[in-house]
C-alpha cells in the first residue's frame, strides 16, 4: 500500500472547506477570559455534600436509579408484610411492658428441675460443677470403640437407655465415675 500515491485529491479539496468554518464573532476574544474564570473557579471549588455525591449517578443513569428504587421498595414491603409475624410478642406481659423477664416456669433451670426432680439448689450446684469439670473429661463409653462393632455399637441395648435425669445428674456430678451410657444419649 502506498498511501502517498493515492488518488484522493478530490477529498482533500472537499476537506479544505472545513478550514473555512469559523466560530461566532468575538468567540476568540472572550475565550481567554472564560478560561481564566474557570481556573479561578477551580481554585475555589465548593465542597459537594456527600448526599449529593451519593445521588449523582442517579441523574445520568435513570435505569440504575429505578432498579434501586424497586429493590428498596421490595425490602420495605417484605419487612412490612412478613416482618410483622416475626415481631409478634412471645409473652403478652412483655409486650405490655409489665415484666422484663420470662415467667419463672419457663426458665431453663426450672425446666431442668422439673425433669430431674432435683431441687433448684442442687441443680444449680450441678451446673456450677459442670463448668469446672467438663463432660469431655469423662472416659469414652466402652461400647463406642469396640472393634468390629460397627453401627451395632451405636445401637445400644434398651437397658443402656436411662432417664435423662440420670444422665444429667451423674454426668455432671461425678465425671470420673460416670456411667459409660450417660454421656452418649442422642
Amino acid at each position: 500500500m502506498h498511501p502517498e500515491q493515492d488518488d484522493f485529491e478530490s477529498v482533500r479539496c472537499l476537506l479544505a472547506l472545513k478550514r473555512h468554518e469559523v466560530p461566532p464573532p468575538g468567540f476568540f476574544d472572550a475565550f481567554p477570559d472564560a478560561v481564566r474564570a474557570r481556573i479561578r473557579a477551580g481554585r475555589t471549588r465548593p465542597v459537594i455534600p456527600w448526599w449529593q455525591r451519593l445521588f449523582r449517578p442517579a441523574q445520568w443513569r435513570p435505569a440504575l436509579a429505578g432498579a434501586c428504587a424497586v429493590a428498596v421498595g421490595g425490602v420495605v414491603v417484605w419487612h412490612a408484610g412478613f416482618g410483622q409475624t416475626a415481631r409478634l410478642p412471645m409473652y403478652p406481659s412483655l409486650a405490655r411492658g409489665e415484666q422484663a423477664s420470662a415467667p419463672n416456669h419457663l426458665t431453663p433451670l426450672h425446666a431442668m428441675s422439673s425433669v430431674t426432680g432435683l431441687g433448684d439448689a442442687e441443680l444449680a450446684s450441678s451446673v456450677a460443677n459442670s463448668s469446672m469439670r467438663p463432660v469431655v473429661g469423662a472416659p469414652p463409653p466402652s461400647w463406642l470403640f469396640t472393634p468390629g462393632a460397627g453401627m451395632r455399637g451405636v445401637t445400644r441395648p434398651a437397658a443402656a437407655y436411662v432417664r435423662p435425669t440420670a444422665m444429667v445428674v451423674t454426668g455432671l456430678q461425678s465425671s470420673a465415675s460416670a456411667p459409660s451410657t450417660s454421656t452418649n444419649l442422642p
Binding site: 478530490s10 482533500r12 479539496c13 472537499l14 479544505a16 473555512h20 468554518e21 469559523v22 461566532p24
Partner: peptide
C-alpha cells in the same frame, strides 16, 4: 452544531471548482 463558513469559502479555488 456547525459553525458558519467565512467569506473566503466562496472564493477558495478548490471549493469553487467543485
Amino acid at each position: 452544531s456547525l459553525n458558519d463558513l467565512d467569506f473566503n469559502a466562496e472564493h477558495d479555488p478548490d471549493i469553487v471548482a467543485l
